[in-house]
């Protein structure tokens, strides 16, 4: 099959072989485990150091553990995995590469900020559809305490953040994809996101920076796949939070996309407003937890048949923030369906 027959328009691709979701797993932190999604995670960690000597080690361990758990569920050995695709938020994505060192699986490190879960599914399903791999595992993680010390202030500092800020999720999620048929959930099509920048430069308001990218990717996906939003039972954005979610809904309405009641945002979903965590969750672990803890289970039970998963990322760094640069946003879309 030639490339042109798989490609739809500028950014979208159809996957004729429909790579399947073979297994998935989620490990959540304490706050995440006490939120609206309690009871849905495989493991909820009580101690966010996992007994390790640093939070960075704990984060990497969490990623390694979630991948092992994901593989064990379907009795896959690390040797049978052709590639591990994933990343995290730490400098030089060390959580992912250190986890890959422990697993001994061929590794492609990805950085798409909080969009990395979708980015890894996107590339992983392409590897399978292209016939390059039989089994791949896509996994990402984030950790409140590592993100805090890298991007913001020391934990014990009495700092203040505005009410529209977001709370980095502690958690890791893994999805194993396979070329084997016979599993109910398949990846059907993809849209590669373009970087969109609406000149937002408040690093506390990442939802505002990412919402235009999510709206742009959704519009491209629907146009190029020649679908209406009602094609899907559920459209999911990654971690816009409650502010970004409201902005996204307005932007969609302007583009003439009717989301109706079939939309949710992982950042708004992961924490309840009563938990007082500002405007919701963020971090690579946010969409990874909601996807692998809740959404894939609902698809497996047949409660949802067509879902568009769009993880969103704010492509900033502490350096660019200090230099006064605006925050570019990105969103990648993965269309999942129950066969």
């Amino acid at each position: 099959m030639s490339v042109s027959s798989k490609r739809r328009g500028r950014q979208s691709y159809l996957l004729p072989s429909k790579p399947r979701v073979k297994s998935f797993a989620a490990i959540a932190g304490k706050k995440e485990g006490e939120g609206p999604l309690r009871g849905l995670f495989d493991i909820v960690i009580a101690d966010d150091t996992l007994g390790e000597k640093s939070w960075e080690r704990a984060e990497s361990r969490m990623l390694e553990d979630v991948i092992r758990l994901c593989l064990e569920k379907k009795e896959l050995s690390p040797e049978s995995v052709d590639a591990f695709l994933g990343g995290d938020l730490l400098n030089q994505i060390v959580s992912a590469s250190f986890a890959a060192r422990q697993l001994g699986v061929p590794f492609l490190g990805l950085y798409g900020a909080c969009s990395t879960m979708a980015e890894s599914l996107l590339i992983g399903s392409m590897l399978i559809d292209g016939g390059f791999a039989q089994n791949v595992v896509c996994a990402t993680c984030s950790h409140f305490s590592t993100a805090e010390r890298q991007y913001r202030f020391p934990l014990e500092m009495g700092s203040v953040r505005p009410p529209y800020a977001q709370w980095t999720v502690t958690g890791a999620g893994a999805t194993a994809l396979t070329a084997e048929q016979g599993y109910p959930i398949a990846i059907e099509s993809l849209t590669l996101g373009a970087v969109v920048d609406y000149n937002q430069n408040d690093e506390n308001n990442m939802g505002a920076a990412m919402a235009p990218a999510a709206a742009d990717t959704l519009r491209s996906h629907l146009a190029e796949m020649n679908r209406g939003a009602d094609y899907y039972d559920l459209i999911v954005t990654g971690d816009l939070g409650r502010v970004g979610q409201a902005l996204f809904e307005e932007l969609c309405a302007e583009h003439g996309i009717e989301l109706g009641g079939r939309y949710l945002d992982c950042g708004s979903e992961i924490f309840a407003p009563e938990q007082n965590l500002y405007s919701g969750g963020s971090g690579c672990g946010c969409s990874a937890l909601v996807l692998n803890g809740k959404l894939l289970k609902e698809m497996e039970r047949g409660e949802r048949r067509r879902m568009l998963f769009m993880a969103t990322g704010a492509l900033l760094s502490p350096t660019t923030t200090l230099q006064g640069e605006s925050i570019p946003g990105i969103a990648h879309a993965v269309s999942l369906e129950v066969c």
């Binding site: 505005p162 009410p163 902005l247 405007s279």
Partner: peptide
Amino acid sequence: NYGKTSKHASYDERVKRLSPKSE
């Protein structure tokens, strides 16, 4: 174009409107 355009300016107003304020 890295500067502000009218599109971005109107988006700024929207962000301001939808972002919760401190008590």
